[in-house]
Nucleic acid binder design. Structure first.
Lengths: 328, 328
DNA sequence: TTGTACGCGTTATCAC
DNA sequence: GTGATAACGCGTACAA
């Protein structure tokens, strides 16, 4: 059986409340009592049960972090930043993966909600209403999404996309395909919207190839469709899909960027590793994790604040997967 | 405020006990009571507080999953399998990343230990004694490690390494370098031991290049050292390090496999994506996650069992990063 | 300064 | 079949 506050109290020869006090406010107990308690704590390796504490204080010291897919290298960078920052602030992070399934997302939030003080939801796939309903019960910060009345950290997709479209236009591309990500993804909708605006502004035709899974296999599956559109360049919802395209293009003998240019989104660590290295729109991932936690903790300490917003920069990173348009 | 069992009881016009019973054993209450309760539960969106339940039952329904580095694509495959299997069995998984830091590992286990029913520790970096001490308090299953008296799921590294060394020997390699992973890694020690055995058995010289971080950058950093050994082939502790080597080799104009062959470990999804695709020793990752959970649940239901062991297969996957040895 | 008593949300036990 | 009641580990008002 795990060691409880009573075990410590018994060993130290004091009451449970004295143990509690020693831990919470060491200067409110007599030095000799304090010392006896501290020795007992050390000897038994006592560690308070945060769940039980949460029952009475309403605070567990835990935060929930939910992402759609840990296998997508985009998320680990954010997760690492979140965990590092949370550790600094003495919070534990409970991480869960929804497998891109909105239903699983809601179920997970349900299951965790009584055991955490708040949620950081990254690229949440559930509906706005569900999100707001969670927010009614518990502090929530969404990352890479925007929902009315809910605190959010987002990326300035407009800036990055503008750079990318400008880059392609300069290279002579006049027909650009976009491979969309999940229908349930807010940022996918956003990127589609921005792409329509920016391409038409510079006289580039935007071709839609429909939705695909935001994974390697998703990209691979849609590659032939992309080629069939006759586009000289393709942008994807994320880097994994772009890498999937590259894989299929190589198998088909389609040259990149000779036959077609490819632009991804996220700048995951693999992007520069493949052949050719991937041109992509980089997001300030670490900053996002840190900003998200800081915002969440702020909400915890100050629940009545209006929903804050943070927008983080994006930056086109040009590598070898983009080049001059093949002559139509 | 969150909805509690009392709220449900009040709305249904019954006692808390009846609500509890309806949820645990629906057939032990009268149909009309059951229906009233179920309607109230649905209406209020009631969900029991697992932490409070754990207080009395000694079971939280949560499992702890700890990995050294989520950013290493090796782990997400295991994590996914664990979460899928846990969900089937109606357990929630609390996942944490130790950043390859043994101290953080111990701290995390401490922090979580009262909130979970057991731990699945993947590639645990802490000492044997620390591990056994955790095991005294709580059921623990280690994956990719072996500690006396502690239940374990491991991979048959011997088989995979034998295949790899045989493969290289057949290609004419007589001098093979090994880039070691973390000192704290059990499987690194194990692989080193097996390599010494198998290479000497087939008359291949094994060159040690010392330890490096089990990451892309770790591999890149050690690349020059590898070349300096004059080895015609190099094996690494994991795929990430191998990819780091490839990156540096490309920058140096060193051809793979023309100048040097490269063999990784793990078969992460990127391995077949880079150029050249990486020859690597594949591990049954999904099976490991599933087997680990099943073993852990088994322990939960039957605490007195002797520490079980499962060994999963490994398989050399030959791709283009290995070829005939350059003529000395 | 210290200990007692109570309550957090839940389940197990026992009367009824 | 149902409802009090106690107990889990902890924190805090209150009494001593």
């Amino acid at each position: 059986m795990a060691v409880t506050i009573k075990d410590v109290a018994r060993l130290a020869g004091v009451s449970a409340s004295s143990v509690c006090r020693t831990l919470a406010a060491p200067d409110k107990v007599r030095p000799d009592t304090r010392e006896r308690v501290q020795r007992a704590v050390a000897e038994l390796g006592y560690y308070p049960n945060r769940a039980a504490r949460g029952l009475i204080t309403g605070r567990t010291g835990n935060l929930g972090l939910i992402v759609p897919d840990i296998a997508n290298p985009f998320f680990p960078d954010i997760i690492k930043a979140v965990e590092a920052r949370a550790r600094e602030l003495d919070y534990a992070v409970f991480l869960a993966d929804t497998d891109e399934d909105p239903a699983a997302e809601v179920a997970l939030i349900r299951a965790m909600s009584k055991q955490v003080d708040g949620f950081l939801l990254v690229s949440a796939r559930c509906s706005d209403d569900e999100l707001r309903s969670v927010y009614r019960d518990l502090p929530v910060v969404v990352v890479q999404r925007r929902v009315r009345h809910v605190p959010a950290v987002t990326f300035d997709d407009h800036d990055g996309i503008l750079q990318a479209v400008g880059h392609l236009a300069t290279l002579g591309h006049r027909r650009v395909a976009y491979v969309a990500g999940p229908r349930t993804s807010w940022s996918n909708k956003e990127r589609q919207r921005i792409l329509r605006l920016t391409t038409s502004a510079v006289g580039v035709e935007l071709v839609d190839t429909g939705h695909a899974a935001p994974t390697l296999d998703g990209g691979t599956a849609v590659a032939d469709l992309v080629l069939a559109t006759g586009a000289t360049a393709v942008m994807t919802f994320n880097d994994l899909m772009a890498l999937g395209l590259l894989r299929r293009f190589r198998a088909l003998g389609v040259e990149v960027p000779g036959d077609i240019s490819v632009v991804g989104f996220d700048d995951i660590p693999l992007a520069e590793l493949v052949d050719p290295p991937l041109t992509t729109i980089a997001l300030a991932k670490q900053k996002a994790g840190r900003a998200g936690i800081d915002m969440l903790i702020g909400l915890l300490n100050n629940p009545e604040t209006a929903a804050p917003r943070t927008v983080l920069p994006t930056q086109l990173t040009v590598r070898a997967s983009t080049g001059p348009a093949r002559r139509g």
